[in-house]
Every structure is written in C-alpha cells, then in structure tokens.
Design a protein around this nucleic acid. Sequence first.
DNA 1: CTTAATAGTTGAAGATGTCAATAGTTTTAT
DNA 2: ATAAAACTATTGACATCTTCAACTATTAAG
Lengths: 156, 156
Amino acid sequence: MTQPSTTEIPPPEGLERLLGSPLVAEIEFLTARARALGSARANALLAPLDLKIRSYAVLSLACSGAAPSQRELAEFLLLDPSQIVALVDGLEQRGLVKRETDPQDRRSKVIKGTAKGRRLLAQAAAATQQAEDQAMGNLTATERAQLRDLLRRIAF
Amino acid sequence: MTQPSTTEIPPPEGLERLLGSPLVAEIEFLTARARALGSARANALLAPLDLKIRSYAVLSLACSGAAPSQRELAEFLLLDPSQIVALVDGLEQRGLVKRETDPQDRRSKVIKGTAKGRRLLAQAAAATQQAEDQAMGNLTATERAQLRDLLRRIAF
DNA sequence: CTTAATAGTTGAAGATGTCAATAGTTTTAT
DNA sequence: ATAAAACTATTGACATCTTCAACTATTAAG
C-alpha cells in the first residue's frame, strides 16, 4: 500500500523494452501521455462533484474575477466556441455561473461564477490539487516549480 | 518573421488578464494546453504523409525493433485495444507494417515495420522533430533536456 | 479435461471535435 | 447616415474518438 491510489492506472510492466524507443524521447509523446494520465486521474476525482476537467476549467476562470467572455474562454482553452456554449449551458443550469451581456459590447456575454459556483470550485480545486499531488508524487518542490515554468513556456 | 510558423496557432492576445488565474498554475491545465498546441502542430506537419500522431506513434514503435504486440501498444499508448486494431489495420493496408502471430503465444500478434514503413518513418520523424523545434523554440538545450526528464517522470 | 483468463476483433452508444449557417450587434467604408 | 463587413454567441450536422460489451481463438490453471 505505497500509494493511496484513489484512481487506479496500471503502470506499464514488462514494457521496459519499449521505453528505449526513440518515441519516448519526443516531447509530443511525453506530453500526450502525461496529459492522458493526468486527465484520467483528475476526471475521476472530479466525478463526485459532477465536473470534468473542461467544466472545471470554465468554472475556475469564471470565478477568477477576470470575467471572461465566451470568446475569450474558447481562445484560452483552445476549444471551439460551440463547445463553450455547451459547457456554460451546463454550469448555468446548475446555478454555478451566470451569463451577463457586456454593456460595452452587447454581442458578447461575460461569464461570472455565482456564490454556489465558488463554493463548488473550492471543493473542486482541492480535488485537482490532490490529482496534481498524485501526478507529481516523485518530484521535489523545486522540480515541480521547474516543470510548471517550462510547461508554461511551451503552452503559450 | 520570427517564426517560420508553417502551422498557425493564434497566441492569446489581450488575455493577459486570464494568465493570472489560479488555473494557469495547475499542471493539469498546462499539460492539456501544451498537448493541444503540440498535437495540432504535429498533426499538421504529418498530414502530407497521411499520418496522425496516433498512427505515427504506432509506426515508430513498430519500426523500433521492439516488436510490440497489440496489447503492449495499447498499454503503452494508453489506448483501447480496439483502437490499436484500427490503427494497425490502416498502416498494414498501406504496407507500412505487418502482423506476425507470435509463435510463443499464437493469440498475440507482433507488429513489425516494413522497409516501406521505415522509409516513411524517417520522413515522419523529421516532421515531428520540426514540430518539437517549433514547440520548444523558446527553450535552451538544457531546458529542453530538463523538460524531457521531468515529463518522463510524470508520464510513467 | 474442464474452467478460467488472455489477445485480438467487431460493433454499438456516447462523448468530442470540426465546420458551416444564422441572428443580433458593432465596426468600417462609403 | 447608410450600407457593407466583421464579430459574438448559438444551433445543428457530421466526422472522429472513447468506452464498453460481446465473441473467437488460444493459452493457463485447477
């Protein structure tokens, strides 16, 4: 019982043979695998709150005080505007966020978290924090900071 | 013309407001965004060769000399076995890989790259290398190595 | 030798991704 | 001022990806 392992993801056993493949040296492959593992974990931990990483991301940005428009959410999350519609619809129906037409530009709608949304976000953030701890369990604090910085520089 | 930018992905402008959000500090979000940008770039560069990152990964492992079975490919690439079937079907029909029933265990089929497959892989690897250079353009050689190592440690 | 487990395959159902078209609004050009 | 062009959110269609439950052939366990 070395790991609490709320979410079980089988580590590759007997695949050491493949670890030497040139593919494993490619950033593209490594980010894809890290993301697959990470999102599976995070989704599992968010499931009890009826959230997925997507809806969590929207909720988080909505509650951040930045008051993003849907267009901005789409650009920032690299999603199609139509997907943002669906995500905001879901959150709004649950009373977690609200749409406000921007008085400056009545075409765009600004998304803001409600009090209920902020309460749920607090729990959700704890869940993703836990997922992150699981993911980076092998890394020291400085290594985590390094990884964060390097990722930030290739993610924007 | 600071970037050749074969693939155009709009950088977030005017979204500095969102960069301060707590979400941006989360590894989960950063890997998701890095992976979205990276796979879009890689897919665009692989498109002329009629490959996607998925089929490229299978081709690469098939040509690596490791002679993986389909089950091993599924586990290593974190894909459902049925998806491996489809991927190998596509590559096999193009004469890029072949299935060989393992004499040790006639249930499992070992995937090996053909000469034609290895030729295409050479071009494909150049393409993903180019994608990687685009992705990590801002990083020094040591930073790239650091990122690779850190990713490897959270990706397995 | 019977039973249970495994590898590959097929097909279905749901989720995601991509794209075109539309209505309402703002910006630009005339 | 008016007309044309551009932009935001929305809807709906369609392809792709994901997930899962069967099924066959083969191997392993009891």
